[in-house]
Design a protein around this nucleic acid. Structure first.
Lengths: 134, 134
DNA sequence: CTGTATCCCCTATGATACTG
DNA sequence: CAGTATCATAGGGGATACAG
């Protein structure tokens, strides 16, 4: 048997069923964060340069304040985003990618680019599927 | 202004706010599918070789039949997975990656590998964050 | 300016039972 | 074997109001 097959099967079995179920699956733990409704957009923004809270809000106009706060906190908790408070009046807070955040973004960037370049193909497949179903 | 910044800002503004909101965002449309609870695991499996329905079920033991069916159908609809029915008795169905599926998986693979290799760092960041909060 | 605190809804997922 | 149908549930996400 191909070693790669055994390897992947093992990974799936390990992370799929046993202790803690998927809770301990690295893939799940990382993908979960970037799969939030706003995470990829915010990571894209912060990959360019640091932004303040209000600036991010303007950049992603239809995000609610609650979700902006929460998504940033989640990204910070996992070590992707650094939060720095400046004791100005009124206070300002700047968000930026950590080294780990940049590293992770470098890995997910491939997928984002694929999405942009191949979206027409996905749309076409979807149309075909829906047409066949009708 | 850096052209890359303008480019990304434009993307975010385009996909963030206007016609249809995020509904027409390529990134969202692609990431949504792979961000399902089981999608990445199933894509990993099918990237190795084609599998039959029951085999996938055994490979990912804690997926419900309902979710296996639905996830596979979603992946098929977007053109990542091919579904082939064999007129045996009882009938058997084989799932495999399409060319587009393999292409997409090649792009997301970077992230999956990053996750496996850097999960300890994420866990550490999480511990630190939680410890500081307590 | 940068958040928290509530309330509410909707969708994703699960459990179970049934079918060609 | 490979699904579909139905019911139930938890949590993600939005709207709004309040606070340091």
């Amino acid at each position: 048997m191909d070693a790669r097959i055994a390897s992947t099967r093992q990974k799936i079995e390990i992370y799929g069923a046993d202790a803690g179920g998927l809770a301990n699956c690295p893939i799940r733990n990382v993908v979960d964060v970037i799969s939030g409704k706003w995470s990829s957009l915010l990571l894209m923004a912060l990959a360019e340069k640091p932004y303040r809270f209000g600036a991010l809000r303007r950049l992603v106009p239809d995000i609610s304040q609650r979700m902006l706060t929460q998504t940033l906190r989640d990204l910070q908790r996992d070590g992707y985003v650094h939060r720095e408070v400046f004791a100005t009046t009124p206070p300002s807070v700047e968000y930026s990618l950590t080294d780990m955040g940049r590293s992770m973004y470098g890995a997910m960037e491939h997928l984002l680019h694929w999405a942009e370049n191949n979206y027409p193909g996905v749309q076409a497949a979807r149309r075909d599927y829906d047409a066949a179903a009708a």
